[in-house]
Design a protein around this nucleic acid. Sequence first.
DNA 1: ATACTCACTGAGTATAAACTCATTATACTG
DNA 2: CAGTATAATGAGTTTATACTCAGTGAGTAT
Lengths: 196, 196
Amino acid sequence: MAESKRKIQKELTRKHILDTAIKKFGHNGFVKTRTLDIATAANISHGSLFAHFPTMDDLMTSAIEEFGNRLCTRLHDEVSKKQSLPDILQAHLNGILDFEDFYTHLIIERRLLPESAKNTYIVIQSTISFHIGLAAEKEIQQGKIKNMPLHMLFNAWMGMIHYYLSNGDLFQQNGSIIKAYGPELLANYLLFIKST
Amino acid sequence: MAESKRKIQKELTRKHILDTAIKKFGHNGFVKTRTLDIATAANISHGSLFAHFPTMDDLMTSAIEEFGNRLCTRLHDEVSKKQSLPDILQAHLNGILDFEDFYTHLIIERRLLPESAKNTYIVIQSTISFHIGLAAEKEIQQGKIKNMPLHMLFNAWMGMIHYYLSNGDLFQQNGSIIKAYGPELLANYLLFIKST
DNA sequence: ATACTCACTGAGTATAAACTCATTATACTG
DNA sequence: CAGTATAATGAGTTTATACTCAGTGAGTAT
């Protein structure tokens, strides 16, 4: 019996805990979310959570990895048909938009999280870097944008976005930061990098 | 008797705790530093710490305020004789350099800290913003740099610096991030903003 | 000189939150 | 259908750490 009722149920519960954890981490951050919060939100007993994830670190790791997969898939889909750098950057913003809360807490709290968070974070950064680098290189050759080390181009873009996300609380702003400031960010970044 | 031996001693101990706390927060961050760590490092009893700072939040608040004063004074000194934007930006980097550890932990963990941290953070940002804004405005009028909203100019610069500081652990780099990457950051930022 | 005050001590307390485990209910096995 | 395995439960345990407080001895006032 490959898929017994029990196995299916267990897997279902696991997924449900993971989903709930991702939501909770997105709302309250990693440091301020407790195991009991997640269990309660998922409508399971506190103890049950530990049957699926032996430690909070495990749960965080799994949640972050799951998030990384979703975001990278999303980015890949979004980016795949685009070519120009502005399109790619816009695609990047669109990709983040769907996961903005979680992403924001991840970049803020990353250094307080288990080592695994670092790896996932690097994977995400690399994915973005790859797409942007490809487009940027082409446009540099075409003379559309300034000739500049690719990592600076990338870091400047990421820096601006992360700065806005991690200081979002200072912007007297409730909804999505990307929605509110994305267009301005993109426009001005393009102004920075365009040649002449 | 304005300054009794006791009052002097008490004030001395308070200062010493504050200094030690600032060092500890700089080394290990706010979240991971415990009251006992600070007391031990300061060579006082655990209980004594609470005679000076009734709660950990109070101690953090005081430490962050003290740090804010020091940094702003330092920035002011450093900046006062400079006029050109590149000079001001360099002065900004020099100013951070002296407090890099603490500053890095502050920007990373700010949103997990007591509300007071927010205020001090805003004061620091405003101080920097003021100096940069003044110089930038002038250079825009002189046509030296691109005509662009001042806040974008400021946020792009801050974004790059904060990005490097808060991701410093990924750069296979032990010493000061500002020392290692400051020059490159400055040069490329200037390239971004210069007109033509 | 004596009584009082206060900075400091450190063992003890309180609390929060991760984690355990005996028990229960349900699904599977032969 | 009887016996066994396992997902789920939730009250209880453990641990970490902020905070307390009765005690000590040096400083101060009269």
